[in-house]
Design a protein around this nucleic acid. Sequence first.
RNA 1: GGGCGAUUAGCUCAGUUGGUUAGAGCGCUACCCUUACAAGGUAGAUGUCGCAGGUUCGAGUCCUGCAUCGCCCACCA
Length: 1002
Amino acid sequence: AGIATQAVVERRLLEEEKKSRHDLGREGLVKRIWEWKEQYEQRILGQLRQLGCSCDWRRLRFTLDDQCARAVRETFFRLFQDGKIYRGKRLVNWDTFLQTAVSDDEVFKEPVKGHFWHFKYPVIDPRPGEPTHVTIATTRPETMLGDTAVAVHPDPAAALDGAVEALSRKRREAPAKEHGVIDVQIEAISGRRQTILPQLIQLRDMAHRGVKLRLPLTDREIPLIADEWAKPELGSGAVKITPAHDENDYAVGQRHPAIGAINIMNPDGTLNDGVPTKYRGLKMHTSARAAVIADMEAAGLFNPETDREDREIELPHSDRSKTPIEPYLADQWFVKMGALQHGQPKGMAIPKGYAKLSESPDGNMLVETPGLAQSAMDAVSDGRVRIVPERYGKTYLDWLGEKRDWPVGRQLWWGHRIPVWTRTFQNKTEREIVWKDALEVARQERNDEGNGCELYHEWNPDTIAGIAFVCINEGYPDLEAKAESLGFVREPEVLDTWFSSALWPHSTLGWPDETPELKAFYPTSTLVTSRDIITLWVARMVLAGLYNMGEVPFREVYIHPKILDGYGETMSKSKGNGVDPLDVIDKFGADALRFGLAYMATETQDVRMPVEFECPHCASVIPQTKKNRTLPQIECEKCGKAFGTQWAQSHGSEDDKRLPRGAVVSERFELGRRFCNKLWNASRFSLMNLEGHKTATGGRGEATKTATTGRGFMLEDRWILSRLATTTGQVTEALEAFRFADAARLLYAFAWNDFCDYYVEMTKARFAIPEQRPAAQRVLAQVLDALLRLLHPIVPFLTEEVWQLLARVAPNRGLAPTAIKASESVCIAAWPVADAAAIDAEIEAQFADFQAVLGAVRELRMGQNIPPREAVEFCVRCNEATAELLRPMQPYFLQMAKATPTGWGPRVTPPEVAASSSISGGRGGIEIYLDVSRFIDVGAETARLAKVLEQLRGFAKSMEAKLGNESFVSRAPAEVVQQQRDKLAETHGQITSMEAALAKLK
RNA sequence: GGGCGAUUAGCUCAGUUGGUUAGAGCGCUACCCUUACAAGGUAGAUGUCGCAGGUUCGAGUCCUGCAUCGCCCACCA
């Protein structure tokens, strides 16, 4: 509902119907915007649904619907009553053609040929030896009529030195060919120490003395002031200050409030009553400029021969009307962010949160209300609202700490119209009439609660000209009618979008009514948002929530990373580098998109995502570059046909828009797609093999005792259950801490590397053995069940589908002794709880030994180039305990490495012709000997062993060096030293056996 | 101008309180269509952890400076 919305609709209106908003009128335009909004709302909601966002769609709200509008008006009214809303002045970008303020976003700068004009301003009563004139330079001569000061630098010598230093620095970094140009600049500035510095120092001293100048063409005297904005290295070193018509001058005015500001422009760009009569009505940069120049020349203060330079000027233009922008001091509504002081009558209780500042002898008090900004700062400082990652708390606090008042009015038609009616008066008599009428409006209020109407007026103490305000709350149409009948006019402006957005957490729940929803859901738990609106939205929600509800709107704020394009730049429509999620969903699926995003959502970093265009004709992909992303059409390198781009949809011609559009895709989502595919296949396998699944009858001990009979739980069962329990705990922890990437990575590793690569693989052998089948089925169903639940928040569609299928073959889940009927849908299934009893470090270590032996066998096979289909034999030398554990794993070696173990234990005899490997683990090392008598490639094995030995020796050497270092041994913690010693001993053992194997080969 | 972040394999990124010779995915190489999955499996190659100092027995990790890139803010939504 922002400024962009109106701008888009206006642009389309102009393009398609050649109409401006004035042709339609306020109501007509707002109606059009509503239509546009309905259309895009459907599109956005469609995107959310396709993404699988699990929202309570019955509670859909829009910040401009009636319920939110009521909350907005109530809030504005309360703030107005509290004196927290006031009218002030603010410098805006004024479009004199459209007669509206435009945002900075809608301003573009264009170089225009212009001039630098040097004017002389006479000094009033200079002392002997002091200059009689000050020369100023300007590109906008007509603004001199609004000058309120002339500034010189407070320390011109230092400023000159600084400028020289900055240039020297630039010279050092610049390529040699630019040195000449920079040298000239340095020389020019250095030269100024002799030429104008003495005079600048003189002027500075005059400024400190309070010397005034006569502003030519007017009867005004303006002060000479010292301010750092005046750059001694530029122009004459003195600069005219026009606070009402220049941004930088406005800032100077803020630093020197005494100089004031004079607005010399009417909204249509003509000069107003603030200038001498003869200039009134002239156009700022045309007729007024010519008149000022002519008169300055006539006054002898400007010589067109010598005082005019040609110069290229970066002139700001309005993006909408393409006419030059005038900085303009406009009336503006503000919300007070700082503390406010009130008088408080004697005897009245001081409201909570107010501070008593003083008390007069008669007992009346001066109290201070806490400022809105401070209240929101406190909520974060004391932890009522926690921002994650923590560092963003600084952004929030720094911004609020400035306590800058919030300008809430916008020169738009689309939004919540400010509920204030005004009427101006010119003198004391009129003021009395107007105020009497205002009171008349207030009297219309039928109840006495005073929550329907609030009055206020302000005037210039000299002229008694001013304005009266009547603020009317929602639900008092009779007051509105009365106000209008008495000549009060409603403010045309609407409120800043963020004003209504700030109320979101409570306005959507029915506030100001005390609805059951409000009671149930406020404060909410977590806000998830982007860091660029921490100040604009998050801070405002907190302060609005505290103000209206007396309670923070949410407990936690999670700031997510941003997806950037391949160049690390923010995506935007104008850059043409955006990605439509629907493109990604089409090609990769919503689950892959979600998993990919979760996987990328790390805490510290934004995500760089290079994208490609997919040719709609031949499906070949073309990398997106800065060049081709803003072309109206792209020619496919492969098939030669042209296709359209997303950018062309808003910037291209009608022909361009009709071209088939190339989808924007990114291989970053391949990971998610592969993962989902893997999961789907693993699920299919499980479902195929769960026929006859029964929940356990084996009793409580089953899960914690390893069976040797083959009927109960085997090592791998206990291992996968242990891994599942560990993973469940870690994933839960990661999600609770908003570490989504960790959660995704943990689940990826568990599902792929543990579940698919090992557990599922091992069940194949067991399903072939009838007595082993039930236990394997139980564990398989159990692990799949838990995995689906763990993955569901990230991969909702696939998990739900599998869940439904799983319910058919295994309606009841769980291990002994309790089996539970599965929930109807995985999205309402309970979150898995990590079964602490299942976590078994011993089992995991033993299983790691199995994996290491299996890996060694596979590696030896590869080293000898043994064809995968060939069966081989091997034996393992290890201690008896390890042998005991590994022996039952025999079938898996056959299945997973096509290798049959022939012996286990400390006394095995290696085969005559062997390829061997020594691995750590199994408490004392494990040696694997692969019988390669039929395949022996002595050269390959020798080379492999030599390489392994080289690595081991290098490793041993570095450890020996470390242990030989006296200070390491004496200063490092004992366990670290011991760890090194143990490792070294083990490495020496490995070296010995590898050396023996190598010797045997020769 | 102010604030924040990043810099690790060809690419995109992990790397928890400092402690074995730094990891993943993609890409690359070799072999394999093994009955869930070739969108797969097994094995392999690939790094002056941006640069320069410092603290420490020990630094990708902590400190300082520099460089490069990016984001936010600068009375804009």
